[in-house]
Design a binder for these strands. Structure first.
Length: 941
DNA sequence: GCAAGGTC
């Protein structure tokens, strides 16, 4: 059995198809020669005596050996990670075990992973898995830069061996990244007392990228606009307006500009006419970066563009989207692709390209061995794709066509003029041959047409414009610009660059589009830079690249390179550990700064966003505890509160938004405005409140009912200008409102927990409908009918379940309130006694025997509940009474334990009770035949 | 809980 291992499932399938087809003698006999199957959850492709399967990229991962998982360990400090041993552990266990299984009996294994460094390492990982169960099977390596019949057949006809040096270079990179990344991440997170979700990460790629963004921001902040002046004249020729610019493009000095303006005098005399042509080169094929840049012009974010391209790739519409290559390999049949594309709705453009096909396709600078440039791989129907998918597909198709289309040509025209002692110029251009622009329609070809003029022509001067302008700072990075810049600096790869931005955002190092750094992002970069940690420098990547080259060439070994890196990292830690406190403080100060949203209106100290250990967050005064002013915010379950740049004009406080992963941010706006409006309704719930009173409270910075209920009465007296008695009354009212609100929020919480969100029916909506209908607490909900609930966006079954759950919760709460202790309550519930009504209706003796609770205690509970419910409590029951009655009853022949229980349930606990009972009724209540009851009654007598 | 790199 020949085992072929590809880097990914799709590659495995295509390789199998090509090899199976190439094997067949006559090509006319088409059809599914390849048998697709699933083994251990992995797709397999079999033909003849061959089985092909795809990995999922790296199927093993490196990590530290066990013992290093505790970040705060006294023994294994971050520093010890530098020399910690690393291990490889499987990440795709099913694939690993399948390879092991097949390898045992394989007679040949071919590694057919991607033709690049990481592919070689992935191949070596597969090789090691094979070797773990089969020491002898020959292992080949097939290398190809496109999965075309030609390349695949040659690669398999002439296989090579694994390049272990190249793979070792990849391993060195892996280990160095882990050592530096993990040790520094832990160190700096601990120094700044950050844990859990808010750790501060550091890495060879993310940190220099962050540093780039921080640097740009500093450049912008430090930028001082310089004024300059631009001079132009408006004129016309035979009715066509002409604007001519002064040949000094920018005057740095105002006096010079004014002087030139003075020296400008009519007429404008044409002194030179220059005609020319300009070639506008057709664009090069797409690699990942240029594709992301082009998609950005269509308003796709980098990550979104890649996700869509990957989708299209998985469906066979476009080639592999992660590539560094801008040169089509010879083996790619470009004309065949054109033919295929004629089936699409873009066939007109395709036809144009075929008719005007340039001999050699355009090419970019980078030719690499991994994959061909991004190109269409199949005809897609517009209806089969989403709008966005189609836009991306069309972009890739049109770019492909453009690379096979002629250059565009422009006719250019340049005039020079004299005006007094000054010289002016005007330039025009006109598209003469559209070329690739016929098919690549993403930028408008704008003509600037000038009227025809000859040397010596005189033109009038209609106006002289002397405009003062200012230089502008460099712009913040857009996502695509950032990716371009990363590529230039060698940071990240075609597959990872677009993810780095997401990582920086999720760590809250940067925000916004275009991206700008947060203070914490800045703090981390500055901490690294100030303490000479070279990881924020792209130079580190360059050094690693050089070392990898040396390992590949076998001039250095993997371990030599790692060891050198470890020595460096140890020096870094010497400096870091000596300054741990200072580093931590610097970052924490930055963090605090980011949370300050303005001045406290009461005492003038800073107001700061604060989070408690639980889910609540608020804005508090840094003057606490002397000043207790605070502003409420929605629970952190809706998102973490973040300061925004915008400032409220009324309160002079920064706006706040709540951010949560996977959700749109919730724009709170001015937190105080929000606080005021969300508390207004509650304030109005106090019977004696009115707008005027609320205005007075606000004037004293009292905004919530909670404050009215809890502030010192003196403050209220002062704020409202009333007497103590009124204030005391008001405080009582506020307490009442708080209680109503507490119950309402309990109800909302319950609804949120038990109502499944669906389109158009959020739990919040259901809760709002309940409050609207006057149902304000759990008791109210428990008392509702299922019918009423179905009016509130719930289905009949949902209503019933909700009611059952509500009643269970409500009853438990009610029973606790009546005085049944929690431990006993548990026993009652287990025995099926769940409602207050049960306690009133059932005999305490019955409650006792089915729960094992002493009769006296059960009686006490029943009494408490009945009193609470306003029902006559049962007569006292004692252990002795129960025992005597029980013995009496059991003496009656034919009356056993199970019947006894039924009698208890019906309230009969002794012979007296039995005798006095109505036999018919008791029969019905117990399910015991009436004659039998009569017989028992007779026996008593 | 940490990196970066594959792939889904």
């Amino acid at each position: 059995m020949h085992l072929i291992i590809a880097e990914k499932n799709i590659a495995a399938r295509r390789i199998a198809e090509i090899l199976a087809g190439a094997d067949s003698v006559s090509s006319e006999k088409k059809g599914p020669k390849v048998r697709t199957g699933k083994d251990n959850g992995v797709n397999t492709y079999r033909f003849d005596d061959t089985i092909t399967l795809g990995l999922r990229g790296h199927v093993v991962e490196i990590d530290f050996e066990p013992g290093y998982s505790n970040w705060r360990s006294e023994i294994n400090t971050p520093r010890t990670l530098i020399d910690a041993k690393t291990i490889k552990k499987p990440t795709a266990k099913n694939i690993v075990s399948l390879i092991k299984k097949i390898s045992k009996t394989a007679t040949l294994v071919t590694i057919a992973t991607d033709y690049d460094r990481e592919g070689e390492l992935i191949g070596k990982e597969a090789f090691e898995i094979v070797r773990s169960t089969n020491k002898d099977v020959p292992v080949h390596r097939a290398r190809f830069s496109a999965i075309t019949p030609q390349e695949i057949t040659t690669a398999f006809e002439d296989p090579a061996g694994i390049d272990f040096d190249l793979a070792a270079a990849g391993e060195a990179r892996q280990i160095i990244d882990l050592l530096w990344g993990a040790s520094l991440t832990r160190f700096i997170s601990i120094a700044a007392k950050r844990g859990g979700k808010s750790i501060l990460s550091v890495g060879r790629v993310q940190s220099p990228t962050l540093a780039m963004i921080v640097d740009r921001e500093k450049e912008i902040e430090a930028f001082v606009p310089e004024p300059y002046w631009m001079l132009s004249v408006d004129s016309e020729k035979d009715g066509t307006p002409v604007t001519a610019r002064h040949t000094t493009d920018r005057f740095q000095d105002k006096r010079e500009a004014v002087q030139a303006e003075h020296n400008t005098a009519a007429p404008l005399v044409v002194t030179s006419v220059k005609e020319g042509t300009r070639t506008d080169r057709a664009p090069a094929p797409f690699d990942t970066t240029s594709f992301i840049v082009a998609a950005a012009r269509l308003h796709f974010s980098a990550a979104n563009a890649m996700r869509i391209a990957e989708d299209l790739y998985m469906n066979g519409y476009v080639s592999y989207p992660r590539t560094d290559n801008t040169v089509y390999p010879k083996s790619l049949d470009l004309d065949e692709i054109l033919k295929e594309l004629k089936k699409t709705s873009l066939s007109k453009a395709v036809q144009w390209t075929q008719a005007n096909r340039r001999k050699e396709p355009t090419h970019g600078k980078k030719s690499s061995t991994d994959h061909p440039p991004i190109h269409p791989a199949g005809a897609a129907k517009k209806e089969a794709l989403t709008d966005d998918q189609w836009k991306i597909y069309e972009l890739i198709v049109r770019r492909f066509l453009a690379t096979l289309s002629p250059d565009a040509r422009w006719a250019t025209l340049k005039y020079l003029f004299d005006a007094g002692t000054e010289t002016y110029t005007a330039t025009g251009s006109r598209l003469t041959e559209a070329g690739y622009r016929e098919v690549y329609t993403y930028s408008e070809a704008k003509d600037t047409i000038l009227p025809e003029m000859q040397v010596g022509n005189h033109l009038p001067i209609l106006a002289i414009n002397n405009e003062e302008k200012f230089t502008t700072p460099p712009p913040r990075y857009s996502q695509s610009k950032l990716i371009q810049q990363m590529e230039e600096l060698g940071l990240g790869t075609k597959s990872t660059r677009h993810e780095v931005i997401g990582k920086l955002i999720s760590r809250r190092y940067v925000e916004g589009t275009p991206v700008r750094p947060t203070l914490v992002g800045r703090g981390v970069v500055e901490a690294m830079e100030n303490h000479n940690v070279p990881i924020t420098n792209p130079e580190m990547t360059r050094t690693i690249e050089q070392h990898m080259e040396e390992i590949k060439e076998a001039n250095l070994t993997r371990d030599e390179v790692i060891s050198e890196s470890q020595t460096m990292l140890r020096h870094v830690f010497d400096a870091l550990e000596a300054n741990e406190d200072q580093i931590g403080r610097e970052i924490m100060d930055r963090n605090d700064e980011e949370r300050i949203i303005g001045k406290c209106p009461v005492c003038g100290h800073d107001l700061m966003i604060r989070q408690t250990k639980g889910m609540s967050q608020f804005i508090g005064c840094t003057g606490y505890p002397n000043c207790t002013f605070n502003i409420g915010l929605p629970s952190a379950m809706w998102g973490t509160a973040i300061r925004e740049d915008k400032v409220c004009e009324i309160h002079n406080l920064n706006y706040v938004r709540l951010i949560r992963k996977g959700a749109r941010p919730w724009e709170i706006g001015c937190p105080l405005c929000n606080h005021i409006s969300s508390n207004h309704e509650a304030l109005m719930m106090m019977p004696s409140s009115d707008e005027e009173m609320i205005a007075r409270l606000h004037a004293s910075h009292i905004y919530s009912v909670y404050e009215v209920a809890n502030l010192e009465p003196e403050r209220l007296t002062k704020a409202l200008g009333t007497d103590k008695a009124t204030v005391a009354c008001l405080r009582e009212e506020a307490q009442g409102v708080l209680e109503i609100l507490r119950k309402r929020s309990e109800l909302k919480k319950f609804v949120r927990k038990h109502v499944v969100p669906r389109r158009g029916r959020s739990p919040a909506k259901v809760a709002a409908a309940l409050v609207e209908a006057g149902v304000g607490d759990m008791g109210g909900l428990a008392a509702m009918t299922p019918e009423a609930l179905t009016q509130m966006h719930l289905s009949a079954t949902e209503a019933e379940t909700l009611l059952n759950e509500t009643r269970a919760v409500h009853n438990r709460a009610a029973l606790r309130e009546y005085g049944v202790p929690a431990v006993s309550l548990k026993k009652y519930f287990e025995a099926g006694i769940t409602t207050p009504a049960d306690f009133c209706a059932l005999h305490p003796a019955y409650l006792s025997i089915i729960t094992g609770i002493k009769p006296e205690t059960a009686w006490k509970h029943a009494t408490a509940v009945c009193t609470g419910m306003g029902v006559t409590p049962p007569k006292k029951v004692t252990t002795k009474m129960v025992e005597t009655g029980r013995n009496e009853l059991l003496d009656i022949s034919g009356l056993g334990e199970s019947m006894l229980e039924r009698l208890y349930r019906a309230g009969v606990i002794d012979t007296t009770g039995l005798k006095d009972a109505d036999a018919k009724k008791l029969g019905k209540a117990t399910g015991i035949p009436t004659e039998k009851i009569r017989a028992f009654q007779d026996a008593c007598k």
